[in-house]
Design a protein around this nucleic acid. Sequence first.
DNA 1: TTAACTTCTGTAGCCACTACAGGATCAAGA
DNA 2: TCTTGATCCTGTAGTGGCTACAGAAGTTAA
Lengths: 129, 129
Amino acid sequence: MFAIGEASRQSGVGIDTIRYYEREGIVPKPERASNNRRMYSAHDVGRLRFLRKCRDMGFSLADAKVLLNLSEGDSEDCQSVKELAELHISNVRMKIIELKRLEAALNELTANCNIGNVSCPMLAQIRTY
Amino acid sequence: MFAIGEASRQSGVGIDTIRYYEREGIVPKPERASNNRRMYSAHDVGRLRFLRKCRDMGFSLADAKVLLNLSEGDSEDCQSVKELAELHISNVRMKIIELKRLEAALNELTANCNIGNVSCPMLAQIRTY
DNA sequence: TTAACTTCTGTAGCCACTACAGGATCAAGA
DNA sequence: TCTTGATCCTGTAGTGGCTACAGAAGTTAA
């Protein structure tokens, strides 16, 4: 059993974030030692690591919770997992497209930018769009 | 002079957002009519439109404010504008790279996803990373 | 006159943390 | 034993950039 600091180190989830997950009901309340300190089992730490991986993948915390529950359930509903993941992938793809469009627009905007101008062509551009 | 609803329609900035910008000091407090309603000049509306364009470009509100001030200043400091814009562009590029990496990881993760499995390979993957 | 619309102020919620304050407890060294 | 520093506790507030109310007041059109 580990104290919260060790659980944080092993899972890569910040101490405050662990307590936040507990408050929000993302993870079950851990056991407490006699001095009221939280004590985490290896399984608890695994849960935290799972959540961190989901978050690193860009899943929302709500989705991460769903995936965690699916992962801990009796039968892993692969269909639900797939749907969740594919929706997420398509969101990521849309964001990439948006950002590329944005990058192009910004490139165009700064193309005429020359140092030393009194009147900035970029600002003029934004004003007159 | 326009009421806030008309200013919102003309600028594309939501009514609540206009009031929020006022509270935050992003735009100066507008005149008030005798009935205490905000009245916006064409210039005020132009400011809002400018801000909306900056936000559409993905600039933070703080940056948008800086750009607006540069735009309204006596001499437009093109150098500052350029720096701000290029920093922003590089941030956008970094985000694109990150998202592409994410997309690849998600693709790999769901590659083995077949409907009907009792044990989900994607969840197994997240657990054992 | 009635109804629908608009505006006002103030406050709270969203997401996912993050950062305190102020106190208690613990472990290790002098 | 004392001290120092690390760790932990609870509770609260802040971040960004809105967005969504509630409840009241005023305006406009039929």
